[in-house]
């Protein structure tokens, strides 16, 4: 995949950082404001896809990010299940929230018990998964031979 014109590259370099920051903000504040792991994860994936589209990539970096993103996606899923399992191990039930983690101060960042770490886990999972899907669908190493 070749990169795009310098105009696109400069703008993409400016925007991708902001997009990533906004994605992480949405993930971290999912229990206080609209958003959450799913929305923030897709935004993080969009930041990576923007960079990948604007700058292009060579085959070996693409293969590395492909492997890395599928591993990170699995780790996000494992983290989510572990958070749910902690309730079973520590108290009584799978997905036990308040009794395991405490509810924290309402309307502050540290509140909602499991919801903040679970949002982070889901954000990692969704972001890495969609970036892997994009690499699989659009990347140069799969270009068809005519």
């Amino acid at each position: 995949m070749r990169g795009m014109s310098p105009v696109v590259q400069v703008i993409a370099r400016l925007l991708a950082g902001l997009l990533f920051l906004f994605g992480t903000y949405i993930v971290m504040h999912g229990h206080l404001t609209p958003g959450g792991g799913f929305a923030g994860g897709v935004l993080v994936a969009a930041a990576f896809i923007l960079m990948s589209l604007a700058f292009g990539s060579v085959e070996h970096t693409e293969r590395n990010s492909y492997t890395l993103s599928s591993v990170v996606e699995s780790l996000g899923g494992v983290l989510f299940v572990c958070l749910a399992l902690a309730g079973y191990v520590a108290v009584a039930y799978f997905f036990q929230n308040a009794a395991t983690y405490g509810t924290g101060t309402p309307l502050k960042l540290i509140s909602g018990g499991m919801i903040l770490p679970a949002n982070i886990a889901i954000g990692i999972k969704v972001g890495a998964g969609l970036f892997a899907v994009f690499l699989a669908l659009g990347a140069s190493r799969f270009v068809m031979k005519d």
Binding site: G129, L130, V133, A136, L137
Partner: peptide, 19 residues
């Protein structure tokens, strides 16, 4: 909320099959 993201993933699966 969850169904929207799942929809994107399943659309990508169908597109991969089409490709």
């Amino acid at each position: 909320l969850t169904a929207i993201v799942i929809g994107l993933a399943t659309t990508a699966l169908m597109l991969a099959l089409a490709m």
